[in-house]
């Protein structure tokens, strides 16, 4: 090999190396992972598994656990992270369409939720996943939110009037809902709502079953309370990317990956739901009134601009596919 050939090879190799470094995917990307329990718990484990998959796509990830969700969202906005795992309610500010999956009264069963998430992972909806610099690269079910009561005497909606209801301060939908039913909203956040319920500072909260054991919500329910076995909303975790920091097809591949994790997430949700004490459905006589209340609230919140109308229509289609005899399936309210 002549000296000239060697030089040419070295130059080519050098060029190849510098090209690889310039590929957006080859440099580790930082993901701020909101997790109340830090590196423990399922959301973080799921992201750890995803990081391995991402590595195989040529995009190594550095996971950064953050216990305060507001900070995780702010770090994403401030470019401290390239992506963030947030609850759907928090992610609504980055994408109103997917952020409306958590709408009050949206979907009442998990088969319907799987149907919706499968639709959202389809390439035809990829455009909807992007809003401005952000892209939703996956949704994971956290389980339905249920109403937790510290007193079984609150046995219908009218009796919630005047009771102290913890609402997440970053979710105006919850505050509006509280006011609609005459409850006294107590602004809270994910890190303190459980303590407030457990020490009696609030009477009513909405939470997923997956929070029951970790946050010891059974203490708040106590011997005299109940958990209403009626899904108020389907909560989710959503991976929000700054899409300019990832390869163009990354989001679509990630959405397919997270959809495939649905059964794994649901196993945990079902296990958590089977641990709840005094988990009672609404009284038979009140069931349709509860459904009506949730439907009316969701429609009012959509009209107020809090939920995305297209997502509301998608969810209605899912509800009516699953239960064509629902009264709403013959009206045009959504």
């Amino acid at each position: 090999m002549t000296r000239t050939t060697l030089f040419a090879l070295t130059l080519l190799l050098g060029l190849a190396t510098s090209n690889a470094a310039a590929t957006p995917g080859s440099v580790p990307r930082t993901v701020c992972v909101f997790s109340l329990v830090g590196v423990h718990g399922e959301p973080y484990d799921t992201l750890r598994d995803f990081a391995l998959t991402s590595q195989s796509w040529g995009v190594p990830l550095t996971l950064q656990p953050i216990t305060n969700e507001r900070i995780a969202a702010e770090d994403l906005q401030a470019r401290q992270c390239d992506a963030a795992l947030l609850t759907g309610m928090r992610a609504r500010q980055f994408n109103a369409f997917t952020g409306s999956v958590d709408a009050i009264g949206g979907l009442q069963d998990y088969d319907g939720l799987e149907m919706l998430l499968a639709a959202l992972a389809r390439p035809e909806l990829a455009e909807r996943m992007r809003q401005g610099p952000y892209e939703i690269a996956g949704l994971m079910p956290l389980g339905a939110a249920y109403i937790f009561l510290n007193d079984r005497r609150i046995n219908n909606v009218s009796k919630i009037a005047g009771k102290r209801l913890a609402v997440l301060e970053h979710d105006p939908a919850q505050q509006m809902m509280a006011l609609r039913i005459g409850a006294q909203p107590v602004p809270s956040d994910i890190s303190n709502f459980a303590n407030r319920f457990n020490n009696g500072a609030v009477d009513v909260i909405a939470a997923p079953a997956t929070a029951y054991m970790p946050l010891e919500l059974y203490r708040g329910v106590g011997a005299t309370g109940a958990v209403v076995d009626l899904p108020v909303a389907q909560l989710s975790l959503q991976l929000v990317l700054r899409h300019d920091r990832f390869p163009p097809d990354y989001g679509q591949k990630a959405r397919a990956h997270f959809l495939a994790q649905f059964p794994r997430a649901m196993r945990l949700v079902h296990a958590a739901e089977s641990e709840m004490l005094f988990f009672l459905p609404p009284p038979d006589a009140d069931r349709s009134a509860y459904d009506q209340l949730l439907d009316d609230a969701r429609i009012a919140l959509t009209e107020a601009g809090l939920y995305d109308p297209l997502m509301m229509r998608l969810m209605k289609r899912v509800r009516c596919t699953r239960q064509p005899d629902r009264p709403e399936c013959t009206d045009e309210r959504e």
Binding site: D229, P282, P283, D284
Partner: peptide, 9 residues
């Protein structure tokens, strides 16, 4: 108040 439960619940 009457509640109807599944076997599992």
């Amino acid at each position: 108040q009457t509640f109807t439960l599944t076997r599992a619940r």
